[in-house]
Amino acid sequence: MRNTERLKLFAKISAVLTGFNVMELWGTSMMETYFYWVNAQTKGAELDSFYAEFEKVFTYNVTDEAIDRAVADSIMPKESFGGLANAIITLWYLGQWTCGEGEKAKTYIPTPEAYQQGLIWLIGQTHPPGAKQPGYGSWATTPDK
């Protein structure tokens, strides 16, 4: 599979895993950064089978509900693909990449923008402290919903 096609697939996978739509994820400007980061951090064979499994899910399931169910069954369990799906979710939401388990676990922040662009801030209708300032006095305004 060519890189551009894989990038498209990665975008689609990221949307399923995060609950944000593909365009919203592009809007963070992190799509390509994360795509290449995941490529570099994951063993080739494992990554290939991860993408292949998702292609299967997208081929055999039409509705969003069916896709979610299939992902929950075959991709989300920790033992599947070395917990890659979980790692990608954490990457999008927190801008952090954790590998290894227990005491050997290490956390990386791919780029400074990863912190600023974490989806957690959007979901919380808040802002990353120290970056993307919301403006003086904005803390006095209640969130929309």
Binding site: M23, E24, W26, G27, T28, S29, K132, Q133, P134, G135, Y136, G137, S138, T141
Partner: peptide, 18 residues
Amino acid sequence: IGLMYDLKYKAVALMNMP
């Protein structure tokens, strides 16, 4: 002021959507 910042973030997000 908050709206002005919001405006910027929303504009930048749009400009990142291919």
